[in-house]
Design a binder for these strands. Structure first.
Length: 318
DNA sequence: ACCTAGCTTGCTTGAGAACC
DNA sequence: GGTTCTCAAGCAAGCTAGGT
């Protein structure tokens, strides 16, 4: 028999049919977790190069997945959820990621487990493990959360001031119905998969120079015209980098963003403010600061969904 | 500098329950 | 019977620490 795995450049492929008709799915993030599961299941160590044909996955049952999640959380499959001395050592979100990774590779993905077939991750025994670990977290018996806190308004202002101070704040058309606003359209973004998800969006100004997106955009455009890149009008150009190579531009932006953030977050003026507030600060909150602030000031989720850039102008009386 | 593991966040979608 | 609400599932990112 020809080595079916060789067709995929692999050696440790279990139970490959001689002429596989189905190409294995692959997802970089899920694959790592799935290989860990299969290694546990088969009591052997697969390399990250391993691929598993759907036909080799058909025997996976809900109790396999549930036991694996128990093992991940408690270090054993012999778990009594009523025993308050047994505490999970990982977060429920970690188990959920494991569950998603396993689900991703199941031959039957969409159907709930009906007792004999379906997706084994969509089953009561599996959901019960995750639920019990969540309950333990609530009771402070689980692993402590690693969540980081949001920026406060004081910290956000300090970030803006530091950016201006470092000279790196180099950084559309008027809306026809709202002459005091700008309209724009983003054709691709996170979680955007259809054209209808790219409506015209309105940018409103803020009565606060620290938060005004219009001022920031104007500054950026003026500077970029001077430097001759980004907003200067080249159709192949990216807005926030002089790099025009589609592969290099995101890396350039990412590196620049990291360097600037690191410089600001480690600056003495910012640390003087941040150290006064308890909790581990997450820089993730910088991009949702406006939404967090608006919700904190009483705006509804729907109002925040309008996605007004910068501080909500309506809250400023603008 | 780059990669990996563990974790968090924000969002959409769809099924089923609850409500009118 | 139609609408609204709730929740699980899934997708697509990003952050941080630690290792190489």
């Amino acid at each position: 028999m020809a080595n079916a795995g060789a067709a995929f450049g692999l050696e440790d492929v279990p139970d490959l049919p001689e002429a596989p008709t189905e190409q294995p799915k692959y997802n970089r993030d899920y694959h790592r977790l799935f290989v860990k599961f299969m290694s546990w299941l088969h009591k052997r160590t697969y390399t990250k190069a391993a691929r598993f044909q759907p036909s080799a996955l058909a025997g996976i049952q809900p109790h396999h997945v549930a036991d694996y999640l128990k093992w991940r959380a408690y270090g054993t499959t012999d778990v009594d959820f009523k025993d308050l001395e047994q505490n999970p050592t990982c977060r429920s979100s970690t188990l959920e990621q494991d569950k998603k990774a396993i689900s991703f590779y199941m031959p039957i993905k969409g159907a709930t487990w009906n007792g004999t077939s379906g997706n084994p991750t969509k089953s009561d025994p599996v959901n019960e493990v995750v639920k019990e670990v969540k309950k333990a977290e609530t009771q402070h018996r689980g692993k402590k959360s690693c969540a980081t806190r949001d920026l406060t308004e004081t910290e956000y202002r300090k970030v803006v001031h530091e950016l201006y101070g470092k000279g790196s704040f180099e950084s559309t058309i008027p809306a026809s119905r709202l002459p005091f606003a700008l309209s724009c359209k983003v054709h691709w973004s996170k979680n955007i998969s259809e054209e209808r998800q790219c409506p015209d969006q309105i940018i409103l100004g803020s009565m606060d120079t620290d938060f005004c997106a219009m001022l920031g955009l104007a500054n950026y455009m003026e500077a970029s015209f001077n430097y001759g890149y980004g907003a200067a009008g080249r159709e192949d150009a990216f807005l926030f980098t002089p790099e025009s190579d589609p592969k290099l531009a995101p890396k350039h932006c990412n590196a620049a963003y990291r360097n600037i953030l690191k410089a600001v977050f480690l600056s003495a003026p910012f640390l003087a403010v941040a150290l006064l507030i308890a909790g581990v600060l997450g820089s993730h909150s910088i991009r949702k600061f406006a939404a967090t602030l608006a919700r904190g000031m009483g705006a509804t989720a729907d109002e925040v969904d309008i996605r007004v850039a910068g501080r909500l102008a309506c809250l400023d009386g603008c």
